[in-house]
Design a protein around this nucleic acid. Structure first.
Length: 482
RNA sequence: GGCCCUGUGGUCAAGUGGCCUAAGACACCGCCCUUUCACGGCGGUAACUCGGGUUCGAAUCCCGGCAGGGUCACCA
């Protein structure tokens, strides 16, 4: 059997869209699963949209995610070059070959003329399709214009009757009326090929066996097939992927800051969690397993289990998955990653980051939410004393007023301010006071944190705050209670 | 608008004519654990878009409506 070769062919726009990462992931998984090759090709045929540094974004993202390519611009391969602008001279001869065969033709219509005709068609409520105007030029006329240096494009001569169909691995049999086919441009006036053309030429030249790409290409695929057939080339297997949506009617978008890989990394998502989750948007293993390493993904991946209905990128579920990954992280790694986020509110403070990290690891879903969770350690929130009330803990404002003054001297008397010592000192007194643990610890924690819920209990918080701050807050809360 | 694709709980989804009085996960709710929260454990609410067929039997097949998405560039 022929070696499977897949490709990821992004255009360098400066960012990696999550949908693109997923496309790359599936291409990678499938190639690896089949023992084949995963190729990276840069599609930069649109000279007007070149963004400096954009190619590096692609390299970095893919590598960071572990989607290592077997052939590509930077590492080479037997089918290079892997950047379309470096292949520029390659395409025109193929287009001319098509012209020779009568499958394509020169077109001298200017953009302005086309725009006019298009406007006219739209004014009549019709859909504009190129009218094959230049198809009927005589050989002499064409040569004359060519010699005179009139700018031209080369168009594909599409059939206008009958229908085209093909089989897609995920969508099954798809057919289109040929009357809908537009004579697409193959070579642009600047001599560059269009994406549509370069894509087909390169996929063939690079021996791509499986084309996995977004389903937005579903309806242009018949035109690609016309090209393959005109050349007498073997048509690759098509695997069209559903769109990744933000919700039922919107795609992930740049404007909402939810579209790019880097957005998520900046927000404090773990790349492994992101990849794991992304793999599951539009694909499932057919089992209940939902946590996968890259190797497991390779093992489990199956094109047959790709979904036909669009998947919604559920950030809530991603958050959960991310929190699971964080919980399982090596503690030292967590500490290292959490530190900059701790710094955002605690920089300059004398705080036990290790202890804080221990408390926070199971409470972190995404790193960017750390500051809001620990802000109270820096600034005592202005709270409502009503939160001293807690039925189950047998606490109330009155209880707080009674217990806090009792606690003060006990805490004051602790020499070495360790969590253990605070714990022992307070716990020893509670029975003497005839109170339930909750009736003492709830008021204490509220008094020093000003929050109903905190990452850690009264002892942990007191320890983190330090003796002076703890006592200061206790007194302030007592005053607040009046 | 033409054409193409899609339509199971709030979300992801299993399901390929009888095993479906429809699995699992997230979210939500309740209980347990616990000095709060979180983690963890247990349990619960909640779905086959609608209408016609085909069939002994339909979430599963067919047709139509409705809804959503995609596409109709010298962008990729």
């Amino acid at each position: 059997m022929k070696e499977v070769r897949t490709r990821f062919a992004p255009s360098p726009t400066g960012f990696m869209h999550l949908g693109g990462v997923r496309t790359a992931l599936y291409n990678y998984l499938f190639a690896k699963k089949m023992g084949g090759k995963f190729i990276l090709r840069i599609e930069d045929t649109d000279q007007e949209r070149i963004v400096p540094g954009a190619v590096d974004v692609i390299y970095n993202t893919l590598r960071e995610c572990g989607l290592n390519w077997d052939e590509g611009p930077d590492i080479g391969g037997d089918y290079g070059p892997y950047v379309q602008s470096d292949r520029k001279s390659l395409y025109l001869p193929y287009a001319k070959e098509l012209v020779e065969k009568g499958a394509a033709y020169y077109c001298f219509c200017t953009k302005e003329e086309l725009a006019e005709r298009k406007a006219a068609a739209e004014a009549k409520g019709e859909v504009f399709k190129y009218d094959k105007h230049c198809l009927h030029l005589s050989k002499e006329e064409i040569q004359q214009k060519l010699d005179a240096g009139v700018p031209y494009v080369i168009r594909l001569n599409c059939p206008t009757e009958g229908e085209s169909s093909y089989d897609d691995e995920v969508f099954g049999h798809i057919s289109f009326p040929n009357s809908d086919l537009d004579d697409m441009v193959l070579i642009k006036a600047d001599g560059m090929p269009t994406y549509n053309f370069a894509n087909v030429i390169d996929d063939h030249l690079m021996g791509i066996t499986h084309v996995m790409r977004g389903m937005e290409y579903l309806s242009s695929t018949p035109k690609y097939n016309i090209l393959y057939r005109a050349f007498g080339w073997e048509i690759p297997t098509y695997v069209h992927l559903t769109t990744v949506m933000r919700d039922k009617e919107h795609k992930l978008s740049k404007r909402d800051g939810d579209a790019y890989y880097s957005d998520f990394i900046d927000k404090g998502y773990l790349k492994d969690a992101l990849i794991n989750y992304l793999a599951l948007v539009g694909w499932n293993p057919g089992t209940d397993q939902e946590f996968f390493t890259m190797d497991e993904l390779v093992q489990a991946f199956d094109v047959k289990r790709l979904n036909t209905s669009p998947g919604i990128f559920d950030v809530t579920k991603l958050d959960w998955m991310n929190s699971q990954y964080i919980a399982k992280m090596d503690f030292e790694d967590y500490l290292k990653m959490a530190t900059p986020w701790f710094d955002k509110v605690l920089a300059g403070k004398n705080m036990d980051y290790r202890r804080l990290a221990e408390l926070m690891q199971s409470r972190t879903d995404i790193f960017s939410r750390i500051p809001e969770k620990i802000a109270f350690l820096t600034d005592m929130p202005d709270y409502d004393t009503a939160i001293f009330f807690n039925k189950k803990q047998k606490s109330s404002e009155d209880v707080a007023k009674e217990v806090l003054p009792l606690l003060l001297p006990v805490l004051k008397g602790i020499g070495d301010w360790t969590e253990q010592n605070i714990h022992d000192a307070v716990m020893a007194k509670i029975p003497e006071w005839g109170k339930k643990n909750g009736a003492v610890l709830w008021p204490m924690r509220i008094a020093i944190s000003g929050q109903e819920s905190t990452p850690g209990g009264a002892f942990e918080i007191a320890y983190l705050l330090g003796k002076d701050e703890t006592l200061r807050r206790m007194k302030a809360s007592l005053e607040k209670l009046g």
